[in-house]
Amino acid sequence: MIRLTNVEKTYDNGTRALQGISFEIADGDFVFLVGPSGSGKSTIIKLLTGEIIPTGGRVMINGFSMSRITDEQIPYMRRTVGVIFQDFRLIAKKTVYDNLALAMRAVGATNREIRGRIPYVLELVGLAGMEKRYPDELSGGEQQRVAIARALVNNPDTIVADEPTGNLDPNRSLEIMTLLERINALGTTVVVVTHEKGLVNHFDKRVIMIEEGKVVGDGMGTYEVKE
């Protein structure tokens, strides 16, 4: 479960990116995080991945309190959250298999576990048999599927995605979003930041709207939420 209570984040240069954000995301939810550029969406994602810590308020992620977490605990908190970026962040000189294996090995998986798990996850994201390909031998949509597979490979409770379809054409975007919906249906909590109104309206999901570091709307189904 994710719970933000009056969360403030002021960057070192004085920018007040978040000014009292509160919301709660239950296990198994699918949530769109929307809002204009610079409103603080990525800042929220960075809080959820432990990349930054809040300057005020409380952030609880899957049982970890981010204002009290120690450096030693942060890796274990991160294992509960899979992350997906707009630019995929695959390692160009590693095959699909090795990209996924890196993520598994990093948390102590054995070669045997890795060999057993990767084909299953690739199958889940629709890339069965693509193990030996390099990222530059895949389309953008396929690369993003590899990134999703990597986020899933350690079986996290939550997946957070910061504009995962930002680099893809509308058809690919719809496929990726549908894939995330399917992953959510299998029990993983999903939080997706997006600009694409059409996509948000296509899926009948909860939408949290952020403006100038505040929550200005939280409801089902539509991008346009009145204040």
Binding site: D71, P75, R78, I91, A103, A106
Partner: peptide, 17 residues
């Protein structure tokens, strides 16, 4: 550095890296 960033992102400990 890319690999290290990814390993950290998925929850590798400093020791492991």
């Amino acid at each position: 550095r890319e690999e290290i960033a990814i390993m950290k992102m998925v929850g590798a400990t400093d020791g492991f890296i």
